[in-house]
C-alpha cells in the first residue's frame, strides 16, 4: 500500500511528515539500544530483503495483488526501533528512485508502514509471545499473527487519514470495510512470508534474533576448540 501523491491533501501529508520525523528521531535513539556489532549485519540484511520482497506482488484474487510490508518480520528479527529505521530506508529509496509511493506522501508511507505496521504488529506479537515467553517454537507463529494484523491495521489508519484529508468525498464506513477486507487477505501472505523468514533466521542464529535473545544464555566466555572454529 504505497500511497501515491494526490490522495491526501497538503496539511494532512505535512502532518504525517511530522509524525514520521518524530518517529524516526526516536528510532535513531532506540535502535542504539537494539543494535550491536553482532546484530547490525542482520538489520542491514532485513532492509535489503524487504526491498526485494516488495518487488514481488502476489495475487490475492479478483485482479488484485499485494506484497510484503515487512514490519513485523523486521521488528521480530532486529527489534521494533531498528525495524522503523530499516523500513524507512526502504521507503525513501522506493520513493526517490523508483517512483513507488509519492514524494509528498513519504511521511504518510513511513507513518503507515514503518510506524503503524511495525508497532501495532509487534505489539500483537508480544501479546501472543506472552502466552509462553520461554518458547522458541511459538516465536514464528506469534510473528505470523502480528504480521496478519499489521496489514489491516495500516489500512485502517489510512482510512483515518482519508477522513481528515482525503482528496474525494468517499463513504468512510465503506472505505474502512473495503480497505480492511482486502488488506486482511494480503495479511495472509504477509503472515506466511513472515513465518518462513523468522523460522529460517531463528533456526540458523537464535542468538541474534531480537525476540529470542532472552532465551539464549550468553556465556561469559566461550571456549572453542581449534577444530570447531576451523570446520
Amino acid at each position: 500500500m504505497h500511497v501515491p501523491d494526490g490522495f491526501l491533501d497538503g496539511p494532512t501529508s505535512l502532518a504525517t511528515v511530522g509524525v514520521a520525523t518524530v518517529a524516526v528521531a526516536a528510532a535513531l535513539r532506540g535502535a542504539r539500544r537494539e543494535l550491536d556489532d553482532r546484530t547490525a549485519p542482520l538489520a542491514g540484511l532485513v532492509a535489503v530483503f524487504v526491498f526485494a520482497a516488495q518487488m514481488v506482488n502476489f495475487p490475492v484474487g479478483a485482479g488484485t495483488s499485494g506484497h510484503l510490508m515487512g514490519g513485523v518480520l523486521a521488528a521480530v528479527l532486529v527489534g521494533p526501533w531498528t525495524a522503523t529505521l530499516a523500513l524507512t530506508v526502504v521507503l525513501v529509496v522506493q520513493a526517490l528512485a523508483f517512483a513507488d509511493g509519492g514524494l509528498t506522501a513519504i511521511g504518510t508511507n513511513v507513518t503507515l508502514i514503518a510506524v503503524v505496521a511495525v508497532w501495532v504488529g509487534y505489539g500483537v506479537f508480544r501479546l501472543v509471545q506472552a502466552v509462553r515467553p520461554q518458547s522458541h517454537r511459538l516465536i514464528p507463529f506469534a510473528a505470523a499473527i502480528g504480521a496478519l494484523v499489521s496489514v489491516p491495521a495500516a489500512a485502517l489508519v489510512f482510512t483515518g487519514l482519508w477522513a481528515v484529508g482525503g482528496a474525494a468525498p468517499i463513504d468512510l464506513g465503506l472505505l474502512a470495510t473495503t480497505m480492511i477486507s482486502w488488506h486482511s487477505l494480503i495479511g495472509i501472505g504477509e503472515a506466511v512470508i513472515t513465518f518462513l523468514a523468522v523460522s529460517a533466521v531463528l533456526s540458523a542464529r537464535p542468538d541474534i534474533v531480537h525476540a529470542a535473545r532472552h532465551l539464549t544464555s550468553q556465556p561469559e566466555l566461550q571456549v572453542r576448540t581449534a577444530a570447531e572454529t576451523s570446520s
Binding site: 500511497v3 501523491d5 517512483a99 514524494l103 482528496a167 468517499i170 473495503t178 494480503i186
Partner: peptide, 29 residues
C-alpha cells in the same frame, strides 16, 4: 510478480478515487 493493482489501488478504483492520484515528481526517473 502479479501486475494486478495492489490492495490500495484496487480499492481506489472500486470506490472511484483512483483518479485523484498524481504522478510522482520522479515519475520520469
Amino acid at each position: 510478480a502479479s501486475a494486478s493493482p495492489d490492495g490500495l489501488e484496487h480499492v481506489a478504483e472500486t470506490l472511484g478515487f483512483a483518479e485523484t492520484a498524481a504522478d510522482s515528481a520522479v515519475a520520469e526517473s
